[in-house]
């Protein structure tokens, strides 16, 4: 097999799915770093975002790309709401209680999606899209947009974290929560901003997953493991690490089908996760130790 085939059939699809994992993994790493628990409803929040997008696309007849910002905002509101009603209530309890609660939220969100949109697979648009040819490399527009959108969102997030007052407060809360409180940072506000960002990123991940594949109630749940693997691979608390981790897991999953039967694709993320925890628990970019 030539280099072009490898690029077209493995690398490009790997980078596309990796970009989607990256969007999810960045949110997971932020929740880990600032709120200090594993958020198991992350995938199903992405599912909700994808279906809210479907709702807008069918109701208004707009393209899914136009729906993106609205869907991110809606899911952010849902995420903040979930935090206010459930997670915030458990704040003083051991973190494992919140982890278990987030599993419950995952099931609840999925059930709501199934009740509203049914259990059949759906798509945003009909028909087959032929890939464009760029000097032999074949990429569909939606694939290119997925990768570019991921980069734009992550750069915007990094600018916010590095430059803005509240972005710095989020980093301070992740770095040393006690000292952040002693500096006068309002913890509640940091938590709310975190959920706005995480909810928005979840929705983007879900929407792009639906755009490149199809929408079904289990779509988010089934990418929970690769997203966690990506976050841990990159180093917990590291936004750039989560992106790198997402891309690596995505490409590794596609490449694995070169050597292994396709059924083992999903096991690749698990293998990467185990290997990383064994060899370098701080992740590629030296994150927090869990």
């Amino acid at each position: 097999m030539g280099a072009l085939e490898i690029i077209n059939f493995y690398l490009v699809p790997g980078l596309v799915v990796g970009s989607i994992y990256a969007l999810g993994a960045v949110g997971i790493t932020l929740v880990f770093a600032i709120l200090r628990y594993a958020h198991l409803a992350h995938g199903d929040l992405a599912t909700l975002g994808a279906f809210l997008g479907l709702g807008l696309v069918t109701a208004l007849g707009i393209s899914p790309y136009l729906a993106l910002t609205a869907v991110m905002a809606l899911t952010a509101v849902v995420a903040v709401g979930i935090d206010r009603v459930f997670y915030d209530y458990l704040r003083e309890r051991p973190k494992i209680v919140t982890v278990m609660a987030s599993l419950g939220i995952a099931l609840m969100v999925r059930a709501i999606v199934q009740m509203v949109w049914g259990v059949d697979s759906q798509t945003y648009t009909r028909g087959i899209v032929r890939p464009e040819n760029w000097f032999g490399i074949r990429v569909r527009d939606r694939e290119l947009i997925t990768i570019v959108a991921m980069i734009v969102l992550v750069v915007a997030l990094q600018l916010f974290l590095q430059r803005s007052k509240w972005g710095k407060a989020m980093r301070a809360m992740s770095d040393n929560p006690d000292l952040a409180l002693l500096s006068g940072v309002d913890n509640g506000k940091v938590v709310t901003i975190t959920w706005v960002i995480v909810g928005g990123l979840c929705a983007a991940a879900g929407l792009f997953l639906g755009l490149n594949f199809e929408l079904k109630a289990m779509m988010g749940w089934s990418m929970l493991l690769p997203m966690f693997a990506a976050a841990i691979l990159g180093g917990v608390g590291r936004v750039e690490g989560a992106v790198l981790g997402g891309l690596i897991v995505g490409v590794a999953e596609e490449m694995s089908t070169l050597f292994l039967p396709t059924e083992y694709k999903a096991a690749t993320a698990f293998a990467i996760l185990l290997l990383m925890l064994l060899v370098r628990p701080t992740g590629l970019l030296r994150g927090k130790v869990l």
């Binding site: 007052k165 710095k168 407060a169 980093r171 301070a172 992740s174 770095d175 040393n176 006690d178 000292l179 952040a180 002693l182 500096s183 006068g184 940072v185």
Partner: peptide, 30 residues
Amino acid sequence: VEAGVCYVPQVDNVFREMTVHENLEMGAFL
């Protein structure tokens, strides 16, 4: 803190992953 009392704990008293200047910025957060 707003009442004018600032405290430097015995341990873990800086933001390690932030620059010196950002540490000062966090001090002036309010």
